[in-house]
Write a protein that binds this DNA or RNA. Sequence first.
DNA 1: ATAAATGATACTATATTAGTATCATTTGTC
DNA 2: GACAAATGATACTAATATAGTATCATTTAT
Lengths: 134, 134
Amino acid sequence: MKLITRDTDYAVRALIFLAQEQKRIISTSELVSHLRIPRPFLRKILQRLNKEKLLKSYKGMGGGFRLTVYPHRIFLLDLIEIFQGPLRINECIFRKRVCPNIKTCKLKEKIDSIQRYVRSKLKDITLEMLLKRE
Amino acid sequence: MKLITRDTDYAVRALIFLAQEQKRIISTSELVSHLRIPRPFLRKILQRLNKEKLLKSYKGMGGGFRLTVYPHRIFLLDLIEIFQGPLRINECIFRKRVCPNIKTCKLKEKIDSIQRYVRSKLKDITLEMLLKRE
DNA sequence: ATAAATGATACTATATTAGTATCATTTGTC
DNA sequence: GACAAATGATACTAATATAGTATCATTTAT
């Protein structure tokens, strides 16, 4: 059971690199040569981050991507949800027959609370915390 | 992102039914007629629970399964791990290039703590809590 | 004009999850 | 002992999600 899939992982690495290069425009080629991520896959990821407005893209020669959001305002939770969809851990189990009174079920409360916790903790983790320092 | 997959879910439902029938021996057929789970899939699940010693099986005519563990000693976490493997959320992201000093990384600490929390909370949830009451 | 970049989008491959099928073995009942 | 009703073991298929590729159009600095 993975909480973080490959594309989220790659996205994080790419964002770290971009953050460390400040506002410089970095091309996919440059990223590929530094991080070891398959080029077309990385391209797809960067395009997505662009659509989500975390990056701004520049077309044409000398083009590439640039971070548009401060690293302390980029949250791991958001990246996870961009690439993996909404974080839900309380789906399946609560169906008709299992849980007699779904509204008041203690179990549902517990699971909901786990989910809230996980979400809030993942929200605490920012890109900034991942940057190399000293 | 699902925390609980179909087989875990089915296992829970089957266990609930078995727990409610006390120590009576219940066949797959009876379970199938009460829960709506595809028979061969359910059989696979019951066999697994048997191997894990949560159930005891009885072969031959009149045979079936019986719960061998008290519902308050069956934990959701264990069921999840039986069917889905170890619960790990801190795999992927911490590889060579991303995290400069993996030993001391604050982020790893955070994720580890999330994992500990999730595990301990899932460990708090017992089968007993899922049984119908009043 | 051209080369070097991204945009859009469709496709393929691999892994995981979900479910099926089959045959062997055990056991209660007549 | 024969038979039917059960599980044991195991291999197979189907569907879905994840991972990765390919292609062509468009933009833009030189």
